[in-house]
Write a protein that binds this DNA or RNA. Sequence first.
RNA 1: GGCCCCAUCGUCUAGAGGCCUAGGACGGCGGGUUUUCAUCCCGUAAACCCCGGUUCGAAUCCGGGUGGGGUCACCA
Length: 487
Amino acid sequence: MEEKRVRTRMAPSPTGEYHIGHIRTLLYNWAFAKKYNGDFILRIEDTDRERFVAGATDRILEVIKSYGLVWDEGPQVGGPHEPYFQSQRLEIYQKHAQILLDKGAAYYCFCTEERLEKMREEQKARHVVSTKYDRLCLKLDKSEIEKKLKDKVPYVIRMKVPDNKEITFNDLVIGDISVPSSDIDDQVLIKSDGFPTYHFAVVIDDHLMEISHVMRGNDWIPSTPKHVLLYQAFGWDMPYFAHIPNLKEMGAGKKLSKRFGAVAAKEFLDEGYLPEAVLNFLMFLGWNPGTDKEIYTLNEFVKDFSIEKIHKTDLVAFDRNKLLWMNSQYIQKSQISDLPDGKAGLKSQIFKFFGGKYDAAVIEKILPLLQTRIKTLKEFADLAGFFFEKPKVDKKILSNNWKNHLSMAVEVLESLEKWGKSDIDEGLLSAVKEKNFKTGEFFMDFRIAVTGSKFTPPINESIVILGKYEVLKRLKAVLGSKSNIKY
RNA sequence: GGCCCCAUCGUCUAGAGGCCUAGGACGGCGGGUUUUCAUCCCGUAAACCCCGGUUCGAAUCCGGGUGGGGUCACCA
């Protein structure tokens, strides 16, 4: 038997911002295709004209690219199965609906939404276990149908679900799943606006685009039987299905919620997370190599990823704490300068993140002091602000002895001939000893006077970069405003 | 409610009948290094949902219960 070429896909709907969970699913699909030298296809499922959001497609495409993931076929790049927008494939769906109609596997339905609503209410009132279409229009004979069609009565096309059939399919991560056909509604295939429903379009496109593996969130499990039925009605081979655990918020709640932080894929980037770090974090949400290795590049992931290793579980918590840790790992290990291959170093990333607000040369100089202290790019501003602008100093947080401390610092630093770290260390430390200051207390006052903060990078190393003139200016400014106080 | 799926530390997970006194990582706690904050290092607490069965032996297999989740649209 010939093995099918591996082709996976991700099919976003342009109904809003791209969710971080979608990036995770996309990543798995992408990696699986790459692992087997297959193709990863991107398809836009824009069949819902009511929820359609203008510009959403472009934004989705942008985010995916900003995470460094690329598709082999799809929008912008094209491919052998164009078009990749479902809204441009309407005739294809119509044609296939006709095939099913001819086979008796589908039928016209002229019921109005009002009637369907009423029908469901009645079913509920009678405590029917699960509401389903009552197949009223299945009783229509040919002439009635033709007349309604001729009169342009709005209609949908429904799938005719076989009676008393056990629908079984194999899921690569879950195993065999089977559902009685009596539990499945006569699904709408073509909506009254002529557009296909998701269930119909997805099956046709996956088949036509020769998708070999369908990997998606496990919330799709209940609708997979509908798809199976469609494959069978057409007489097509089914792709392999693999349903992966969905993401949930830590603690209370289920879905990821804005209440707990970023949700949209783009937000994480805006908050100063590195794409590689987010991806690395995402890899482990439902998958594990079975070793202790946790830091993974994309290439390593492609190599080690396998569907067998996907965790067979229901929900996976999105631990923002661990993401933060992961990001800090990547920041710490980042090269500061740009790499020879053109990959942006930490310096460039920070420069870009803040839109050029901070001078790149200064960023480069101070980064060694900050690399172990920032967990996101955004935090750079909090910790490094004093390098770029004069801080506000709250004198209330200084020690009682602050004036003596700062006066000594001015005296010592002013007399320094060389402005190296060891010169500063030695000068200050010996003076501290000589004057019998408490080392910690002195340096804290000194730190606050120069930076305005109690938590900073190493102070002596910082002032080396800040420069003698600037440091003395800051010390004198703090002293000066209080110099009229005499003891 | 019907149907479907799931069940190991707080979290992500390792674990495919004996290697489990259940391992790793994040987080927590304690300590060390340190002029602050971090980093780094060391240590520590913390889990097999319950009940039956199979077996010489079960976190691992089977059954039931309980709990959680998903889904039941002319949305995807």
